[in-house]
């Protein structure tokens, strides 16, 4: 059994949670004030995910193209995702929502443009 300390982000209280973990599953949680803390701890232990936003260089342009993952990706894939974004090649013009990196790191999630660039 492993013990993890984390801060709940369900509301501004930011309860300090003490979570008992076994086989990547939550066994118990203490320190929470409400049930949001239980849900947060369970998800955070089993499959933590994050939205990733970054920029891609566009040759010949001063302004880079800003991008995001279309959905949150597994937390342990963040830096691999950033690496893939860095290597991406952009064909102009680009509109908001255009796919810049399809299926990034085999997550099944695309990296998409978040601005228009002619």
């Amino acid at each position: 059994m492993e013990t993890r300390i984390m801060t709940c982000i369900g509301c501004p209280m930011g309860c300090q949670l003490t979570v008992e973990v076994e086989n990547n599953q939550m066994v118990s949680v203490t320190g929470n004030t409400c049930k949001k803390g239980v849900e947060y701890a369970r998800d955070e232990v089993a499959s933590p995910t994050r939205m990733v936003t970054s920029v891609v260089r566009v040759p010949g342009r001063k302004a880079p193209l800003c991008v995001k993952t279309a959905q949150a990706i597994p937390k342990d894939q963040i830096f691999a995702c950033l690496q893939a974004v860095r290597k991406a090649h952009v064909n102009l013009p680009v509109s908001i929502g255009d796919v810049v990196v399809p299926n990034v790191c085999n997550t099944g999630i695309d990296v998409i443009a978040t601005r228009n660039l002619d």
């Binding site: 939205m51 936003t53 970054s54 920029v55 800003c66 995001k68 908001i96 978040t114 601005r115 228009n116």
Partner: peptide
């Protein structure tokens, strides 16, 4: 324009947008 992270627009549009998307 420079706030490329997400979290904008939850109240206004009911979805989390990046800054440039919200502005657009």
């Amino acid at each position: 324009k420079q706030c490329i992270h997400n979290g904008f627009g939850l109240q206004r549009f009911g979805e989390e947008l990046t800054g440039p998307e919200y502005a657009q």
